[in-house]
Amino acid sequence: MSSSQTGYFVPQPSKWPLVGAVALFFIGLGAAFAVNQHSLGYWSIAVGAAILLYMLFGWFGDVIGESEGGRYGANVDLSFRWGMGWFIFSEVMFFGAFFGALFYLRAVSVPELGDMIHKMLWPDFNPVWPTAVAPNGTEPYSAMGPIGLPLINTILLLTSGLTLTVAHWGLVNNNRGQLKLFLLLTVALGFTFLGLQAYEYHHGWTEMNLTLASGVYGATFYLMTGFHGLHVMIGAIMLTVVLLRSVKGHFKPDHHFAFEAAAWYWHFVDVVWLILFVFVYWL
């Protein structure tokens, strides 16, 4: 079927959602075991990750085969766009909840705990951000500043958004060399970001005493930057698949929604990081 078809392709029942559910079960079970220092924890996570990888290869392969077989017409393409749009909107709400919690803590909870009424309960509490950790006996920690690795990672992500746009121009203009080169640069920048963030976490945990137990600052820092890092990893995997498909000659100048979907997601990740950089690292 051509991309101009008026019908709607309905795929056969798939086993992959069930396989994914089994993978997530093992990962969740392993995480619970690992937190409780059970020896089976990491083994269960490894099994779950292997099953998840099997699911990704299988499911991606089926969808790519359907796409290259011409089964996705104009109506399917439109539904894909709506679906990806709503998915990104749900991600906006996801991070919106995190930012809402951060703003509430900084603008309402922390100042309120330092007012005259609460001074009677916690006389040593200092209502500043980052919060102190002295009440539970934890050693003082250092807050993560914006200069250094966070600034470098910001530059990397902004640059990756530019290289991805140049790759898209190459695809639209049927310049396959430009497409593949700048896609490769985008993927490399994404994984470099992840490597530097892992190093930042290690530095903060071991040298700055910044842990999940470092008051509400430590909890919100790792929660928000960690979930963003997870999204960067997902986006980098998506772009890697798009790169491999581009090398194999997939996508046409007028028919390349998989590329567009990955690009939308990556630009969303870029915007979220800019907001994170300002409100988590800078202010």
Score class of each variant (00 low, 15 high):
2 S>P: 09
16 W>T: 06
23 A>D: 03
25 F>R: 04
30 G>S: 08
34 A>G: 08
39 S>A: 14
47 V>P: 01
49 A>H: 02
51 I>H: 01
53 L>I: 12
59 W>D: 15
63 V>N: 06
65 G>E: 15
67 S>G: 10
68 E>I: 00
70 G>I: 11
75 N>E: 08
77 D>C: 06
82 W>F: 15
84 M>Y: 09
92 V>K: 03
92 V>W: 04
96 G>C: 02
104 Y>G: 05
106 R>I: 00
111 P>H: 04
114 G>Q: 01
117 I>Q: 03
122 W>Q: 11
122 W>H: 11
126 N>S: 11
130 P>C: 07
133 V>H: 00
146 P>C: 03
150 P>D: 00
151 L>S: 09
152 I>Q: 09
169 W>S: 13
180 K>F: 10
186 T>S: 14
196 L>N: 13
201 Y>D: 02
206 T>L: 07
206 T>W: 02
207 E>A: 09
208 M>T: 01
213 A>M: 06
214 S>D: 04
219 A>V: 02
221 F>R: 01
223 L>T: 09
227 F>L: 11
228 H>M: 01
232 V>C: 08
234 I>L: 09
235 G>H: 04
236 A>N: 10
239 L>W: 05
242 V>I: 04
243 L>K: 05
246 S>E: 05
247 V>H: 08
249 G>A: 10
251 F>I: 12
252 K>N: 11
261 A>G: 08
261 A>W: 03
263 A>V: 10
268 F>A: 15
269 V>G: 11
272 V>H: 07
273 W>P: 12
281 Y>D: 00
